[in-house]
Computed example of a mutant assay.
Amino acid sequence: MNSFSFHGGRLADAMAQFGMANAPWIDLSTGINPHGWPGADNLAVDWQALPDAGALNDLEAAAAACFGANPAHVCAVPGTEIGLRMLGDILPGPAIHAQPSYRTHGEMLPHSRPVALTELLGAEDATIILANPNNPDGRIMPPATLLGWLEARRDSAAWLVVDEAFADASPGVSLAAHVDNGQRLIIFRSFGKFFGLAGVRLGFVLGPPGVIAHYRQRLGSWPLSAAALAIGTAAYRDADWIAAMRVALREQAHALDAVLARRGFSAIGACPLFRLIETADATALFERLAHHAILTRPFDYDPRWLRLGLPADREALDRLDAALADD
């Protein structure tokens, strides 16, 4: 169980441990959109030339427009995980990180201490690190609350750091438009989750000029591959697909909620890319679903929790429904 609770996506490990089963495996262990942006295979990528600086500018401008941010405050990074860990060398002073949330949040700043999401108010002298929407419980903190915490840090050395990895599906929760020269606000955005292309390894840090300058100096001349530049730019410019996908994900999340409710589970969370459920023995449920070739995400710090990503289609949802009914 330890390997499966560390992070999602260990499908090869699941096959090795539980067998190949009689049907293809369904991977619900991540919060990655099962409907990847469809244009990636149609893009021409020059693999012989070094990535062009102009292409990086185009990508950051396209992403900024999607986020509602100033392009001058946006820096692309080769994956949000790397971007988060780089911040540890940039921000000074004490820090607190919301718990439960991403494991990385507790490792990125030295001596950061965990604080429950419900107890983050106060500690104006400490940098706050949290995800919004949060993972794994899908909780959304109202932007007004976060802006209040940001205002409380205006005259201190502390920052508000918000990981908005899942905000593309719920753009109303984002603080991207508030990133500015005078604000002690840093935001991270992920490309792979909403666009369903985690293998591209693309993310963004949004912050004031000093923070952005630190990142550019550390990243050097070619921070991203030519493929990441081309795919990211085209995807962020595909406004029709983005709008339609936001609607589709909400509808599919409601369908998942209905299946879970029919099988006696109350879905937790407001992020349409995943749901959390509580059960008396999540390990037993994890293993039961795995024997039906369905991989989910357990958590070592709470044996009652199991997180499920969105099934890709009706067939996958029906297989989940049948597996949950099989005692």
Rank of each mutant, 00 (worst) to 15 (best):
A63V: 10
G269Q: 03
I129F: 07
G19V: 10
I186E: 00
A325S: 12
Q252V: 01
R237M: 08
R201Y: 11
R154T: 12
F286Q: 08
R216H: 04
W222T: 12
S101N: 14
A226H: 06
A284P: 01
M245D: 02
F4C: 06
A152Y: 01
A255E: 10
A261H: 07
D27C: 09
H73A: 14
N22T: 15
H105T: 00
S225P: 04
S101V: 03
D326V: 05
G269D: 03
G207W: 03
P311F: 07
P51W: 10
L206H: 00
A282K: 09
A270G: 06
S112L: 09
S190T: 15
G269M: 05
R237S: 10
G182V: 00
G210M: 08
L175K: 00
A23N: 05
R153E: 03
D27Y: 06
D238T: 12
I231Y: 07
Y236E: 01
G172F: 04
P209F: 05
L206S: 01
D46Q: 08
Y215G: 02
L146R: 13
G54K: 05
P303L: 12
A234D: 07
G232P: 10
W159G: 06
F194T: 06
A244V: 13
A230V: 14
A76H: 03
M86V: 10
P71V: 05
V211R: 01
T233K: 13
M86Q: 13
V179E: 00
G122A: 07
L295Y: 05
P272A: 08
T118N: 13
E164S: 05
L320T: 07
L109A: 02
S3T: 14
I231D: 01
I231R: 05
A62V: 06
A64P: 04
W222S: 09
V115M: 14
E287M: 15
Q99I: 10
Q17E: 14
G106K: 04
N33P: 08
H214Y: 14
R319S: 03
S156D: 01
W222H: 13
G8K: 09
F286L: 11
D321C: 12
L185S: 01
V115K: 09
F265M: 08
G54F: 05
D302M: 11
A255M: 07
L273G: 13
A255P: 00
P272T: 07
A98K: 04
L147N: 08
S225A: 09
A255H: 04
D46K: 08
L260R: 13
A261Q: 09
Q252K: 11
A290Q: 02
P311T: 08
R153N: 03
G83R: 05
P223D: 06
A123N: 11
D281V: 08
R307M: 15
S5R: 12
A280F: 08
G264W: 11
R139G: 09
L150D: 02
V115A: 13
L91H: 08
A243V: 09
